[in-house]
Structure formats: C-alpha cells, structure tokens
C-alpha cells in the first residue's frame, strides 16, 4: 500500500471525463474570508462505487460535497458532474441536474412542519410531477418498506428517533431514484448499533439501486462497511487514497491517528 502527500492516482484519473467517472474535480479551491477551506481538491467518483472521504471535523469535507451540488460555489478549479460544469450552468439547468443527485444531510433535514408522508410526497410532486393520489401512496409505501419503517407515514419528524430520521431522510432522497448519492456524516450522533444499520442500508442502496455515492464521515466503522475506495482529507486537500485496508495499514502518523 502506498500513502503519499500528493495523490497520483487521482491526478491520473482526473485527466478527463470518461463514461465511468460521474464526478470529476480538478484543483478545486475555496476560501471563506481569510480561511482557505479547500486548498487543492482533485478527485473522481466512478460509476457505481461507494467513495468514502475520511477526515477530522473542519477539514473541508462538507464544503467539498456542497460544491458538488452547487450549494457552495468554488473560487477556482473545475467541477464536472455528469460531464457538466455545475457552476457555468443557468439556474434552470442546475435544478434539472440536481434531480439526478441525492443529498442526505447530517441533520437529516426533514421538513418538520410536515408528516413523513408529506416529506416523501414533496419531491414526488415537484420533481416527478406525480399528482395521482394512489400512485403517491404506492410509492410512499414502497420506499418506507425499503427503509424498514412501513408504519411511520403519518408520524411527524419530531416523533422519530435519530436513526429513524436518517432512514426517512434517505427514503425522501431515494424516492426519486437519483444516480448519485452524497451522504454528509450519515452516522453522526447515532449509537453504534443504529450506525451499523445505517451503514448497511447505504450498502444495500448501492447494490439495489446501482447508485454512485460519496460518503463523508469520520466514523471508521461506517467506512469499513461502505467503502469501495477511501480518500483521506486533511487541511483542505486529500493526503491519501486506497482501499480501507490500505488506509488502515498506513504508516503515516496522521492517518494512523484515525484508527486509534
């Protein structure tokens, strides 16, 4: 296994967008005020893979995935999703592109004035323009079953536990069948058993839906279960890349500190 201070494999892969690469990022930089959050981000997300980005809090992981959906605009560098430059697109096309990307927020971001059913119907009505009541009911029942929460449709988000909220948040994203999933700290704040269940659900999503995913976490257990490939982030750039086993066996003291 090789760990390096640069990332030659990423540099090689980011040379051009291929059919296999759904997201390509080259030399991405972002500064807030005087603080440089992303100093030089280079990465690709390959079709169908689970890419885990490991890093301590405040290293720029969340900023990186928020750039991927255009919630935050980078200062410089290239960011292509499905071979389209999200920052150079008109708003209408950005909205269209976002329909192909799912985003599970750290806080689950369920709409707390709506029931679980209304949360799930929200993207169905607006993205897929489904108005038929029976079709809506059918899709809601189907997705709730797939996240193992079939009896929660009429509950309010405040009545759900942290793990259940994550599942419903995931269900709301998956209900429109995105091609890319971005997970922002999916297991943060959950107990180890629920964390494991959520991690296994992410794996199931990858297998059942064939979705390409970026999973941002500092939870090693989650990374072990979900990762096909791991990037380690520190101070706004990636410092290592490999399989979870390669990263775990790294001699680099900074990387080793994750696994203590």
């Amino acid at each position: 296994m090789e760990e390096t201070n640069n990332i030659p494999q990423i540099e090689n892969n980011s040379g051009g967008t291929t059919e296999e690469n759904v997201i390509v990022i080259k030399h991405l930089k972002k500064t807030f005020g005087t603080k440089e959050v992303l100093s030089d981000i280079n990465m690709v997300l390959r079709k169908g893979e689970n890419l885990v980005i490991l890093g301590k809090s405040g290293t720029g992981k969340s900023v990186t995935i928020k750039c991927m959906v255009g919630l935050i605009q980078q200062d410089s560098g290239e960011l292509k999703v499905f071979d389209q430059d999200i920052n150079a697109m008109p708003e209408k096309e950005v909205k269209e592109l976002r329909k192909r990307i799912g985003f599970l927020f750290q806080s689950s971001a369920l709409y707390d004035s709506m029931t679980v059913r209304e949360n799930l119907e929200f993207p169905l009505k607006r993205i897929l323009a489904i108005k038929d009541k029976s079709e809506l009911d059918e899709k809601v029942a189907e997705i709730l079953k797939s996240v193992s929460l079939p009896d929660t449709a009429d509950k309010m988000p405040s009545e759900l536990s942290g793990g259940m909220r994550k599942r419903i948040g995931l269900a709301r994203t998956l209900i429109v069948k995105p091609e890319i999933m971005l997970y922002d700290e999916p297991t943060t704040g959950l107990d180890p058993i629920t964390s494991k269940e959520i991690s296994e659900l992410i794996l199931t999503v990858q297998k059942d839906y064939g979705i390409s995913s970026v999973i941002i976490t500092h939870d090693i257990a989650c990374a072990r279960i979900t990762a096909n490939r791991v990037l380690v982030m520190s101070e706004g750039k990636f410092i290592a890349e490999g399989t979870i086993e390669e990263i775990e066996n790294s001699a680099d003291p900074m990387i080793k500190s994750f696994f203590k």
């Binding site: 928020k66 909205k95 329909k99 985003f103 971001a109 369920l110 993207p123 993205i127």
Partner: peptide, 20 residues
C-alpha cells in the same frame, strides 16, 4: 421558522432536491 429551517438545513434540502 425560516431561521430554524436554515439552521437544520431544510432550505438546503429543498434546494438540492430540485424544488424551489
């Protein structure tokens, strides 16, 4: 209400879901 939705990322969730 909207401040709370901003803090809990609900507005971002609407935005990235393609809704307005």
């Amino acid at each position: 209400e909207l401040g709370s939705m901003q803090v809990t990322e609900q507005i971002d969730a609407m935005d990235v879901s393609g809704a307005n």
